[in-house]
Design a protein around this nucleic acid. Structure first.
Lengths: 271, 271
DNA sequence: CGCGTGCTTGATTTTACTCAAACACTGTGG
DNA sequence: CCACAGTGTTTGAGTAAAATCAAGCACGCG
């Protein structure tokens, strides 16, 4: 509200120097792939500061006015969509380098709640300024489009998970996807800490907490994982992968069309 | 590949005059909200032509190189994501005025198949030219961002549907959403034709074709619908709406956190 | 040390899937 | 024009997967 809110390159606390050029998250964030000159433009032109969000607090809530996007700098978030009746569904988890708030562009209002699952910090990026800078820095424009595109494609993956997989496959796919993302950020591929509760994980996977719990227990019994509450050790990643691939063989679930006429000579009339 | 492919404002057949300014779909398409001057820029600068896609044919397939987005001009499409093992999941249905291909921006390759469910025509928009024009026409940039944002938010709605709803709720939500979209295009709110098969609808809704069929039959028995194959008449839209709202009441499915301490004195132990 | 939350485990029920058969609509050829 | 094949849809019976209900356990915190 005050002048501090618009101060160039300062954190919410007034400390200076939120610069993309210095940030180790750059390769996976908004200014990925920019040249040094372009980075300098971003540093000087794009008003950006940091905001702290304590564990359990909301970065924003559905219905809040949208005018900024946020880049997670540290910590971990969930996004949650709620029905008018109070039923909730976790739509995703966001970690460092990932952008939050893109769903608000269309209507100018956020469509989901974004809640920190641990003490977190985000870079605050005013959207209109981002758009203005995009018009001058094509590679920033391209990167922003890529990020939105990835979010769309990622949604398709979740739809596939929710629409076509069994409980075990969903949990396996989730763990592999999460470790993949952690790995690109320099974390171990075999050890991870689940920042979300079983309820939240179940909500995201379209399962109850009991089913999530049972599945993790079963994976441990089968030697795929070592589970200690929120600490997970991936003992057999190939086994998890296999579980997903195996499950998707024909017959497991529905086929939309049986691959007809792969031979060729008989021309498919097709309608 | 030949010069025709790059011809300004011509259809694939060579007929001239694919102009957004003349198009009745404009309000819901890429150039929504543009001023007459801006529209003229789009008409003259944005190379766009039409492509016909016969029923059953693919506009593109997963893995195809991405370099254009498509705006549906007539007809109806499904987008399908497939696992390496051949299992398929419909991720959405696209009708006139909606944009297809946005999932390909990130990797430069399409992530889904786009298949015409009836004889269709699309406007072909080279993506690099769209980006270039966006840099000069801010309201085009904004509209494109809105479209991508809407696709992301729409993905959240589908996740909610797949993750938190029962079969009946899913079918009801789908029908209401479909009629809503048709209505904005000037079609009846109470009569519609399902362009997709029961298998395809089931795939999208995470159900089997039998469950879809049974649900429609039940809705008809309850006086909510009149079903004649692909012809659907919505007899009681409020009833369908009620079905969705009712189902999302607490207790129906999981709550992430019980709205604690609304009363105050008597704390609900809840467990 | 005791309480509370979150997690695990078990028993039972419900939902939707699978398998199977019959029916209906479409388009084709006699 | 009608018989027929083929696909897509409906309906039924039985089964499997996951939800629900219900305890009990473990970890973290004051």
């Amino acid at each position: 509200m005050g002048p501090a809110r618009r101060a160039r390159n300062s954190t919410g606390d007034g400390s200076p120097g939120v610069q993309c050029s210095n940030c180790h998250l750059r390769p996976s964030c908004l200014p990925a792939g920019l040249s040094p000159e372009e980075l300098e433009q971003v540093d000087s032109r794009l008003v950006s500061w940091r905001r702290k969000v304590a564990r359990g607090e909301a970065l924003f809530r559905a219905g809040d006015r949208f005018d900024t996007v946020f880049a997670v700098w540290s910590g971990f978030f969930k996004t949650v969509i709620s029905s008018t009746q109070g039923c909730e569904q976790v739509t995703g988890f966001r970690m460092a380098g990932e952008v939050i708030g893109l769903d608000g562009i269309e209507t100018g209002r956020h469509r989901v709640d974004a809640v920190a699952l641990e003490n977190s910090q985000v870079c605050v990026v005013p959207f209109s300024e981002l758009e203005a800078l995009e018009r001058e820095v094509p590679s920033l424009q391209r990167q922003f489009h890529k990020i939105m595109s990835q979010r769309i494609a990622c949604g398709y993956d979740v739809m596939f998970l929710l629409g076509s997989m069994y409980a075990e496959e969903r949990v396996a796919a989730f763990l592999l996807e999460l470790t993949r993302r952690l790995q690109t950020r320099g974390f171990s591929a075999s050890r991870l800490v689940l920042r979300m509760s079983r309820v939240e994980l179940g909500s995201f996977l379209g399962l109850t907490l009991e089913t999530v719990s049972r599945t993790l227990t079963k994976f441990q019994a089968n030697g795929l994982l070592v589970v200690q509450q929120k600490q997970i050790q991936i003992a057999d990643p190939a086994g998890l992968r296999q579980l997903i691939d195996r499950a998707q063989l024909p017959g497991s679930r529905q086929q939309l069309h049986e691959a007809h006429a792969s031979t060729g000579s008989i021309a498919p009339s097709s309608g």
